[in-house]
Design a protein around this nucleic acid. Structure first.
Lengths: 185, 185
DNA sequence: ACCTGAACACCGTTCAAGT
DNA sequence: ACCTGAACACCGTTCAAGT
């Protein structure tokens, strides 16, 4: 049975969600598709390119329209949608962060946050978008790696990161943005 | 010639700084120490434990005393010191972030930021420390991976992260903290 | 205490050859 | 167009045995 790129990415996403990033190897993926590892290179140029496609798929499936309202409402919605998208798949935040840091990044999460901040001065929008995306990716990564480590047995005494601490950090950034607006605008 | 744990960590840090995290393998490190790979396991329980020791060493070498002054001055100094420590070694941010996310984390960077925020209400201190450390680690990682990718040839059009964007993000967080203080205290 | 030798169970990737 | 077979150059880790 012959496959398309879509099958490869879909199967990769399933392996990721079921077994984690460490187990998402080209050989494992090939076995899952009932194919020899070398066959994968007919669909994808490298493992890095595969991960980029997987990250893109995670973001695409989690994409939400921005609500109407003031910038604060829209910013909160954009950031929360991004977090939800990352948490929807095991190790999703790590995959997206890794791809984002390197590659051409087909789908840039910063764009939607930047979009949410329309109305604010341009430089404030830029810092806001950058800072928010770094926060969302970092927080989601910590959440996912902590649950991974917890299921592996290590209950260390560090403060648990959860939806509440995410919201608190987000509000902190929004307060900072509001202060900038008050100063400049 | 026989080695101690200190030699192993020091050599690992040198390999990291000279060749990057991808080239810091147990076999490479063993070769550098003129020893067979299996010998490393006499000094270190696993590669993960080695990386934890390396991360610790990076943070220890970059440790700075906090200045006196108001919380804003101290917060800025703590965050900047952490950034400098991470940027002092190639892939330093990635190593520290990886270790921080998993292991017991001997040296927790959050503590010094938390310390810098003395005087603020406890819950504000907690959110501030968490958000700041996520930001510093994420920003430094993006900076280092971007320079790595740039030296590898890819000049993509994304906004460059540098000391200025770091400062801007930091001030945003500090403005948010100030707003909280004004509200609560 | 510190190390070697040898192995185990893996990786990503390439490439000629098949259909 | 899509895949196999076979190889290349690697990984981290274990463990009996040596000094």
């Amino acid at each position: 049975m012959s496959h398309r790129l879509g099958d490869v990415v879909t199967t990769a996403l399933r392996v990721l969600d079921d077994h984690g990033l460490a187990d998402l190897t080209m050989r494992r993926l090939a076995a899952e598709l009932d194919v020899r590892p070398s066959a994968l290179y007919h669909h994808v140029a490298s493992k890095q390119a595969l991960l980029a496609a997987v990250a893109d798929e995670i973001l695409a499936r989690g994409a939400r329209d921005l609500p109407t309202g003031d910038w604060r409402t829209r910013h909160h919605a954009a950031a929360t949608a991004l977090r939800d998208a990352l948490l929807a798949y095991r190790d999703g935040a790590e995959v997206v962060a890794a791809v984002q840091a390197l590659g051409p990044a087909e789908r840039d999460p910063r764009l939607q946050v930047h979009e949410a901040l329309t109305g604010l001065p341009d430089d404030v929008r830029r810092v806001g978008a950058t800072t928010t995306v770094i926060f969302v990716l970092g927080h989601a990564q910590d959440e996912q790696l902590a649950t991974g480590a917890a299921s592996a047995g290590a209950t260390d005494g560090r403060a648990r990161l959860d939806a509440a601490s995410f919201d608190a950090g987000l509000r902190l950034i929004e307060d900072g943005l509001a202060a900038r607006v008050a100063l400049q605008g």
